[in-house]
Write a protein that binds this DNA or RNA. Structure first.
Lengths: 206, 206, 206, 206
DNA sequence: TATGAATGAGGCTTCATTCAT
DNA sequence: GATGAATGAAGCCTCATTCAT
């Protein structure tokens, strides 16, 4: 765990350049999230990164690999976010509100269900396992927060896995737009409040 | 496994077979639901129908057309089902339970969000309108049932659109399988009961 | 050569309806002339005629047959027009002018060269013979007029076949439009006059 | 007959072969000239080049692009030839003769009219502009030679644009073959002489 | 580390043609 | 005489992937 030997003084400017592999992963993640696995081509990724397709293949052996890595990393990041937000020292409802709001503000709708479905046909079973694993861990982070709250007596005891999934499911309501592009509530704040209230009731609170 | 190749030309009108167009629409609907728009090819559809691709194109000018029609028809059917089940003369909670159960029993997970996302990238704006229109109407059917119940005093007054969307969103929880292919609850009945209870609380009932 | 027995009196209205076969031929001729053999589909023809493809096939065994017939009939008509115009009792130059003008007024550019080239790949050799035959006869009509004029002393003796082809070739100049859609001369009359003058000189007149 | 399939990936840079892009353009030009736009498939081009279709698409995004480029390059070459031949220091008639002969010797009949017609239906308006532009410039080269000759007093003053187009139009006469495959004159030399003489008269020379 | 050049496989779509009615 | 339903063959184009440099 020791840091590598590094020259003294201020690092050179070009050290700030993100390594190519990271650029690719970040760009890919965004593109896949925005448009889905099938629609995005390796060329799309390459072009957005300012490199060639061959370079992408230098870092990721297949498209499926790139996708898997992108999704897994993303779920890890979300899990970390859940941890961060939900371990704050505030009433659970407030923490849920914060998380919900953060989630709904992210422009891209993270439709995990959809991604898993698209992936099923194209990924190796090992890759699917990886994704599923990351997904499960993500939910577990939420579950844990609920379990804690149940033990604290903050909320009634109930099935925490159901609670975790229900929360994420309800968040998708926030992304709905009708035929005229109207969301259900005009502001994100209102949207978030309503969803969290609904969820809070659902948990059995009065 | 499939029918032998038919001879050229118009087939004899022997048996009272389902008209080819219907066969195509039904098969396409199932395939699209199971695997998504991008993954399914026109050839997949054709082969499953025992006809050639050209025949599929005889009835549907493009893949996007076929998809749109399939989705719209499906949403119309669901809407009808909602009507049928929700207009029965029973307590609302029972009716919700019935609908939820029917929905969760359908083998294919009807992930509307996912479909709309895939559609966005590949359909004409006119086709998107059609799909969105059908989707909205579907939700309206649910909303109406909620509105009635609020007026009856069966449930507290609240935002019916939110209620409708929340219900559908919660249903997706029933399709979740973890990395070991385990659903959250082992039986559909239990699953349905838990989801409807959660929802029922969410609506503000005590 | 006796006329068929026909009922006395005025024929019924519906006798005025052009027989379907003729409609097809006429429509096909126009479409092929306007857009070429390959581009026009049997469906295009059928739709413009208000019948189905199968009907077109009822009258013409193949697309190549329809095309051949259309082109041959057209060349026969042109040949007749040449006869009519060129056998009038006026100075040759006037007659040439008239024919040229009639030709240039027809909106469609009858680019026989182009048609023969397109046809070569797609027609049977017998069909090609038919077309070539009709084309040759068409030119012969012009040649004959030139031969007559040479014998009359109206124009110097020269190679009549060259004369006939040169005339038709020069007419194509009238259809030229530059990148800004400008023809070489602004009015058809001026165009015709200039071309015929040029031709007239070419024949060796002073 | 053709090269064996190449292995995947970048080929060894062995011999000083013509760059693939040039090979494709040259082959395509010849094929399009010989048989027309619609008849030639991208596969035809690829096979004649000993590469796969995908390779052709690597260099040209669409068939229309390939065609446009082929035609434009060809017209640029012709224009250069016009320049070269017509700027020699000889009497105009001799120069015209030379150009005509060179043109008629080229085995393929360059039927510009036909190509422009085929193009109209299939090319984007931008591509059409490109082709038209190249065509116009080609004619302008001829016009300029005529203008010079008029100013020299070598030929009478007349409309140079008409002169340029007439010349090219008359050249097509040289490619005519009748139903028995007979050209109008048996030898190219005689053909050329007759056409140029006709043209020379047409210009108003005595 | 990065890329340019190439391929194979496959997807969408069109179209001439056929045939029972 | 006319048509609706179907097919087979082919054409355009895309894309994940490979490999020598």
């Amino acid at each position: 765990m020791q840091r590598e030997h590094r020259p003294l003084g201020r690092p050179r400017q070009d050290l700030k350049e993100k390594p190519t592999k990271n650029v690719i992963l970040d760009v890919a993640t965004r593109l896949f999230l925005e448009q889905g696995y099938q629609v995005i081509t390796m060329d799309d990724v390459a072009k957005k990164c300012g490199v060639t397709k061959a370079t992408v293949y230098y870092y990721y052996k297949t498209k499926a690999d790139l996708f898997t890595d992108a999704m897994v990393q993303m779920m890890i990041r979300i899990r970390r976010r859940i941890f961060d937000i939900l371990s704050a020292d505030k009433p659970l409802k407030e923490r849920l509100f914060e998380f919900a709001k953060a989630h709904l503000q992210a422009t891209v709708d993270i439709d995990l269900n959809g991604f898993m479905k698209e992936a099923t046909t194209s990924l190796s079973s090992e890759q699917l396992q990886q994704m599923k694993g990351a997904e499960d861990k993500m939910y577990e982070a939420l579950e844990q927060a609920l379990i804690n709250a149940m033990e604290n007596g903050e909320i009634p005891k109930s099935h925490p896995q159901l609670g975790a999934h229900s929360f994420v499911a309800l968040l998708t309501v926030g992304n709905y737009k009708d035929a005229d592009q109207q969301p259900i509530f005009p502001s994100i704040d209102e949207m978030t409040k309503q969803i969290v209230d609904f969820y809070w009731n659902g948990l059995g609170n009065e």
